[in-house]
Amino acid sequence: MASARISGVRLTGLAAAVPSSVRGVEDLAGWMGEADAAKVAKETGVRERRVAPSRTCTSDLCQAAARALLAAAPPKTVDVLVFVSQTPDYFLPATSALLQHRLGLARGCAAFDVNLGCSGYVYGLWIAASIVAAGGARVALVLSGDTITRFLDAGDRSTVPLFGDAGTATLLEADATAAPMVFHLSTDGAGGNHLVVPGGAFRHGFGAPADDGAKTPSTLHMNGPEIFAFTLREVPPLVGDTLDLAGWGAEEPDAFVCHQANRFILEFLRRKIGIAADRFVIGLERYGNTSSASIPLAMVTELGDRLRGQRLKLLLAGFGVGLSWGGAAVEAGPLVVPPLMEIDAA
């Protein structure tokens, strides 16, 4: 397991943006019936999702979040931009390069993309904090988000009711007085086929049918039982190992913010690990599972008021597509946290 204890880096700001377009339980009832729609909403805990219009990309949501953040907490410069997403504008060039230009950042800014989802925010923080701590940058901007609804098969009852779109922006800056950040990161590619978009890239070509023949080529295929079993096996030890490396007791974090997979999984994890409900963030009721945006989006919507005014010890845990999982123990706040932004069509 890769792990790191990084000193001299502080989180200074956090922002999130979602599409203004809302899909609710009543939209599901239109094609799966009221009873099934209500049952699915109860099980997943998702009552509303934000869905990006067809021309709105993840980069547009992240750009809006970044603009709000940079306006509210303008750094002298941004030295590195990390774009974490599975839904780029293009195969090439890297979306991060386009965002460097669209955000008006200096040409001296390093920029690159990271293709990760549910664990992506933790990885993004780890990468950015490592670069800052190594002296490669004073200020890092992590843009983490996805428009996963664009990958969904409109008739797939296991994914459509669950996923939503969002983009986020997080600023990290060099600060010798900052408390250490701790990271634990792991991967098991043997499970890569359990959460996959099989078509649309180079393994199966463009427009080729998926192996199971039942899915349209470029839609998300999720094996729910496999992902759940993986979560049960890996997340409790991940949380324990991250707490141990941070030197924190189980009661020490002010809030646990896990990837907002669905309410059933989150509640099961909470009870299995033994975390009090008032310290365990569940923020997916109005936004769904937003993949790489879910942790920072929940931090904005559920912890924003507290993070603006005080320092919180946070235990973050991302897990899913890859399979990939990562935990972080960070002290954050007071932070600049602009209000959640709602974006119309780009």
Binding site: G224, E226, A229, F264
Partner: peptide, 24 residues
């Protein structure tokens, strides 16, 4: 599929083992 997840959860909480989803 949701019941399958519920079954895995039940076995984990009642018997303390994670069912292999392929076997399930």
């Amino acid at each position: 599929s949701m019941a399958a997840i519920g079954f895995i959860a039940m076995v984990d909480s009642r018997l303390g083992v994670v069912v292999n989803p392929a076997d399930l």
